[in-house]
């Protein structure tokens, strides 16, 4: 790891100032991806602005129609939250599938979403539920947030403060984990809200995406049979020793089917 200046602001305003003042500053949330990257010397920030002391970024709020999760809320808290489990059980379920228990105790939703790893789980929930990413300066629709491999709509110095999820009528996430890393080889998040259906796929391609043909089919008939016959093109899918693009494409259909069944 290269040496850096470490900054631990107690407010969002101070965090923004710290990042603006740095030559090449980087926010650190839970650090579960960033620290391994730093250890491998794949990044050399001049300043690390760590967000753990900012109370405004923490916590879970459920009101009538939404669940809002502070950016610095760890996965374990979302997973164990009775409120989340009651409002959007699929979200609590998904949080419990990320990494391992220790990673879940440190890793946060804000960090996961900002990093936009192609095999991360949370992006599937953000897109699959039509969530809104709230930053220090604006609100970004989940559909617009994830741009490409490790690339998001965030501009330099922009800080995610929370993610706001609307409550679906039903939803479920099915994950096919990589046997080595346990990241998603394919993860499919399915939701239905007022007749609208979303099918978000992570792991398969360079970035989370919606599977429109499945959404259309499920909108007409929310059943496993409706998606069972839909085969997905693996043309732009990831291809590695664990899964070929073709196999990933196949898994999208299988996981979608199972997610629909799980959603009930």
């Amino acid at each position: 790891m290269y040496e850096f200046n470490f900054n631990r602001p107690a407010s969002i305003a101070d965090a923004l100032t710290a990042i603006a003042d740095a030559d090449d500053g980087q926010f650190m949330a839970g650090g579960q991806t960033m620290i391994p990257v730093l250890k491998q010397r794949l990044a050399m920030p001049s300043d690390v602005v760590e967000l753990a002391n900012i109370d405004d970024l923490k916590g879970i709020a459920v009101d009538g129609g939404t669940v809002t999760i502070g950016a610095m809320t760890p996965h374990s808290e979302v997973h164990n939250s009775l409120e989340v489990a009651d409002a959007i059980p699929a979200l609590a379920d998904l949080a419990g599938m990320i990494g391992d228990p220790h990673v879940r105790n440190r890793g946060t939703i804000g960090g996961s979403v900002a990093n936009n790893d192609p095999a991360a789980d949370y992006p599937a929930a953000v897109v699959g539920l039509g969530a809104t990413v709230v930053t220090d300066r604006r609100e970004i629709a989940g559909d617009d947030f994830f741009v490409d491999l490790f690339e998001t709509a965030l501009v330099e110095g922009e800080l995610i403060t929370a993610v706001r999820f609307p409550l679906p009528d039903k939803a479920a996430y099915m994950k096919f984990p990589n046997p080595a890393s346990r990241y998603a080889i394919v993860g499919v998040f399915v939701s239905q809200s007022n007749g609208d259906v979303r099918v978000a796929v992570t792991g398969a391609g360079p970035c989370v995406f919606r599977e429109v043909a499945m959404e259309t089919a499920l909108a007409a008939d929310f059943s496993a049979d409706a998606v069972a016959g839909i085969s997905v093109s693996g043309d732009d899918f990831n291809n590695d020793i664990h899964a070929s693009a073709e196999y990933r494409a196949h898994l999208v259909t299988v996981m979608a089917k199972r997610a629909v069944i799980k959603a009930g």
């Binding site: 046997p179 080595a180 890393s181």
Partner: peptide
Amino acid sequence: ILEQAVYDGDSGQLVTGTFLDYAM
């Protein structure tokens, strides 16, 4: 069912160079 040490045939690089790819 899990483990394999894989070298890339062209470059000779070890593909399974961490526990993220070598399935324990």
